[in-house]
Design a protein around this nucleic acid. Structure first.
Lengths: 123, 123, 123, 123
DNA sequence: GTGGTCTAGACCACC
DNA sequence: GTGGTCTAGACCACA
């Protein structure tokens, strides 16, 4: 699990996304303290300000909160995390339908094909 | 329906993709003559060689063929087009499951959510 | 059976070759009168001088002879034709071995593969 | 072992063919690094893009692969090479039979003559 | 240094 | 006019 960015979008955006994913996946578990901004920035080979900005975004979203003295923590609000996870999942589903419609599949047809695909390959 | 490219991938690749989509969508119908390389290149603000390369790739895939003197045509092989469409759809489905699993959804859970999403929003 | 030429060799050479093949194949049978130079030239879309030169070459080889008044004839010397045919066949065989050796086949190996190929496909 | 091209076919095609032969012949051994595109282009007195195109074709065929930073290599898949060699050999054999039939030889007769030719001359 | 991509501009054969 | 090929020269990412 390492950091990598594409160049066509702002890096802080991509960082926020990936941290979000890590929280949802439980890599940064609920209520846990995050590594320091400096550490994370070094890890991602990114300017601390950039990392700071990404984390601030997540804080604004309520996924993180800061204790002045001791650092930054993942929210303990499981419900919140569940909501965000659900929201992301819906985006993914929307994108799925969008791209299938681009290929000329109706939504039910798209679902049908997904079911078949799911049964078969796991590669 | 216009041309736009992101900068993180080769342009000719993106052109090939988009033309492929247009063929599948029937914007360039089966057996139809494509605009000339020069026209398409101008339309996409791209060097003719770049357009040429993209189309040559599709030709290699069997989606297009050239009539040396009169132009380039979409294959008449409907089955071929159907195959490619199906292949693309499967990729999209695979990606869907992959990203849902990243969010901690099993495949059946992912499908369930998609069904719900489908019922609701059309945004 | 029509005339066509590649551009990398003198045309009269190619004409001579093809006429030779026609004689060997019996398209211009032994002892028969050839069409006139003008006719042949027109047929092959070639300058009569070019056709003339090709036929003169074949005459020098003894495959054709001219009767001043009545035209040009294929030799009646079957043995001659058989010799030339045999010579050409040997060239073809030589070329076969040469190219197979280029691919790393010894002559016996080349023969073996030819026998196998012969048994199978007639495409 | 030098580079020379005829003018009736695209140069990149001929380059691809000759490189293929060199691989089959072991001049570029299995798994070995090829000279760089620029070197080969200079060697063949050809534009680097042209050489690039030829090699890309062989890459598509699976005979070569690129290590983005360090160079281009011959595949390590001996079986692949053997297949291609065998395919080429069959083409050569087919051509042999075709030209012999043009001369009025049946396939068995053609084989017989080849055997005799093989015993005799090595010129 | 490596491969890869792109542009600009030219020429060819075909009809 | 069409597609196809080739050259020259540039730039990029990677290491």
């Amino acid at each position: 699990m390492t950091w990598q960015f594409s160049e066509d979008r702002a890096i802080y955006t991509q960082i926020a996304e990936q941290v979000k994913l890590r929280i949802i996946a439980g890599i940064y578990p609920v209520g846990t303290r995050l590594p320091s901004v400096r550490e994370l920035a070094a890890e991602a080979s990114v300017n601390p300000n950039t990392m700071q900005r990404a984390l601030a975004d997540l804080e604004r979203e309520g996924l993180l909160y800061s204790e002045r003295t001791s650092g930054r923590y993942v929210t303990e609000d499981c419900e919140k995390i569940r909501q965000i996870r659900h929201g992301l999942a819906q985006s993914v589903a929307k994108e799925f339908f969008f791209r299938m419609e681009q290929l000329g599949y109706t939504r039910p047809q798209a679902l049908k094909l997904a079911e078949e695909t799911e049964e078969q390959g796991n590669e």
